[in-house]
Simulated assay, not measured.
Amino acid sequence: MTYEGVLKKMQTEFGNPIQYYLVFKNSFLNVNQLLNKNLEINFIGYQCLNCGKKKKIFRQGFCYDCFYSSPAVGDWIMKPELSTAHLGIQDRDLAYEEKVQLQPHIVYLALSSEVKVGVTRKTQMPTRWIDQGANEAISIVEVPNRYLAGITEVALKNHYADKTNWRKMLTNTVEHVDLVVERLKLENWIPTEVQEYFYSQKTDLYQMHYPVLEYPTKVTSLSLDKTPHFQGKLSGIKGQYLLFEDGTVFNVRGSEGYVVTVKV
């Protein structure tokens, strides 16, 4: 059977194991059902997720013009400490920025390779951790806006990584750390204005179980620009990656805006 459409990050459903779905305009498929089966991916072209035009993707599923104009990819997305909506100051579109920035945010610790610190909107729990391929995650603080989450993350970057080592994550080379104990170590590192939001007693440790038949020992990343046609046997799904039997890994989220056919 052949599916065709614009790639967007896989939708997920928390469970044991996590369920993954590739969703296109007129169809969808449960990727878990494809484990141990051959999958063929063919690159057709591009379609910007913002303007819908068939323009080459620049970053994050956006064409060049949209990447530098859309409020959905402002600098404060990657650097929450740059958020200014709480001050009534516009970056690109104040109404959009108020909607996204002025809502509860979580600062968390996650184990996807080593311990990392990160920020997410409360509504994105545990989706954010699943997308990162975290085996475990725990909240540190819940704050009322993105700015406070951002300055907390900046303070904790002095002690923890803020990026996932994707190769370690995909080979499941993950440190064994007690995140509940780790959280108790960091209270004094949190900015003064965030201290009141610290989770000291909460036992909200999340554990994620991914549909992986066998983890690879070495991985090779598939780029559709370089390899427009690929075929392989699916051996697992973790984060936003498809893992294939030969060690090839495909970052679905990293290929947002690419138009493909998927044959199963």
Rank of each mutant, 00 (worst) to 15 (best):
K263M: 07
V31P: 03
M169T: 05
F244A: 05
Q90L: 11
T123E: 15
Y160T: 03
E13P: 02
F43T: 06
N16W: 04
P17G: 07
S221M: 13
P216Y: 03
Q101P: 08
A137D: 02
K53G: 10
D65E: 12
D162L: 03
A161Q: 09
V177Y: 07
N50D: 10
T192W: 09
Y108D: 04
Y147N: 00
E214K: 14
I57F: 03
W76L: 12
K9A: 12
Q201V: 08
P216I: 03
N50C: 11
D65K: 11
E97Q: 07
T173E: 14
S113A: 09
T192P: 07
L7F: 10
W129T: 01
E40F: 10
T217L: 11
A72F: 11
L34M: 13
V154P: 00
V260C: 08
V31M: 15
W189L: 15
S223R: 06
D93E: 14
N36H: 10
M1T: 09
I77T: 15
G5P: 03
A134P: 01
P144L: 03
M169A: 12
D178G: 02
K55V: 13
R167C: 08
Y3F: 14
Y46S: 13
R146C: 03
T173A: 10
L222H: 06
Y206A: 10
N145Y: 13
G257M: 05
R146A: 04
R253M: 14
V117C: 07
T2L: 13
F230M: 08
L234W: 09
V117Y: 01
V115T: 14
V31D: 00
M10V: 07
I57E: 02
N16G: 06
V119N: 02
L186S: 11
A161W: 09
T203Y: 07
L87G: 05
K53A: 13
G52T: 13
K8R: 14
K163I: 09
Y21W: 08
L242E: 02
L94P: 06
V249W: 03
Y21N: 05
T127M: 14
K202N: 05
N165F: 11
L156H: 04
I190V: 15
E13D: 11
N26E: 12
E136F: 08
V212R: 02
K226D: 12
W166M: 10
D75G: 11
N158I: 04
K233P: 05
Q124H: 12
E245T: 08
K99L: 09
N26A: 12
A161C: 10
G133N: 04
N145D: 15
L222N: 02
Y46A: 03
P191R: 05
V249N: 05
Y160C: 07
E142H: 02
K226R: 09
S223H: 04
D225A: 14
S27V: 04
E97A: 04
Y3Q: 03
Y108Q: 03
I44E: 14
V252Y: 01
L184E: 15
Y197H: 09
M169H: 00
L205C: 00
D246P: 09
M1P: 11
T12F: 02
N16V: 09
D91K: 13
E136N: 07
F58I: 06
I237C: 12
S69G: 02
D75Y: 08
G88E: 11
M1S: 13
G74R: 10
V6Y: 00
Y64V: 04
T84E: 13
R146P: 01
S70I: 09
Q19F: 08
V264I: 10
C51V: 02
T123M: 10
K122T: 06
G247W: 07
